[in-house]
Amino acid sequence: MESQQILRILSGKATEEEKTIFYSQLEHDPEAEREYLSLKELWIVSGLNSNPTSRPDQAESFKTFWEKTQSRPAAKIRRFPRQIFRYAAMLVVALATGFFLNYLIPRSSTPFSIKEFRSGKGSMSTVVLEDGSRIWLNANTTLSLKEKKGKIEALLSGEAYFEIIHNEVREFIVDLGKIKVRDRGTAFNISAYPDDPICRTTLIEGEVELLDQQDRLLEKLDIAQTFRFENATNRYHIENIDPELVTGWKENKFVFIDKSLKEICQELEKWYGVKFVIEQRSLEQEVFSSVIRRSTTISQVLEMLRVTTGISYQIEEKKDETAIIYVR
């Protein structure tokens, strides 16, 4: 094999065409494969000499690390001993595949018994209550927990997955503005983003009840049912759904099954903090399916979309480090 060719592969200078030729060749030639792997090893090892101790953000990196250690181990944090939701821990889920995590820090200005948690764009977090109940927050979500007289009220804007340990003497209610969700010992997912005209509550395990603002019972859900509530019209209906599709985000995946390009773009916008412009109207309602790990970079996602759907795109980066992606 040409050493010039290998060099272009190793240094990342090879074009797609060169890569195709190269890797196809390797696949069928164990000798070339071994040779390449040896050279790659050599290449990597020689690259580690670039004085890595002088990484520019090293001090900053250590600071971030140290701050994280201060909220671990979880068991030692006990700040609100008299309350039911003394937070045994606020864990930030570190899904091995690495993406940036924001800390959920209770805002100091809020009164004692109200705690607010936020996860920003492109991050995901969990809150663990003292009784072991656990709440996962999807990107761009705010959750505040208010405790009063044996009742926890959660206000949600965004999407969260609740795993609530049922307790006869304390109620757990999620208030979504026009409707409420009452836990009866369950796991359920709620998606209620402010810019989404529909809010969806899906039961994964156990029981939940849907109530109106006057606490009148609207519906009880069965497992794998979604309660779809249309905010503008107050209309709702129940549909059956594969729970895995609803909770895929929690497993660090985007799951798009028969989603319109418009919906897919909305989801990607939330996670990557970019803006999509679909230039060709007819594309908006075209339906695609895809499963994508969230750790994938936006450029890889776009490439994947391009390859699988045939759409083309153009990225315009703006001064404030946001980006607009034109799809056509």
């Binding site: 101790t53 002088s54 990484r55 090293q58």
Partner: peptide, 9 residues
Amino acid sequence: YHDFSGVLF
């Protein structure tokens, strides 16, 4: 951290 994080990075 100072000694080794750069290598890992």
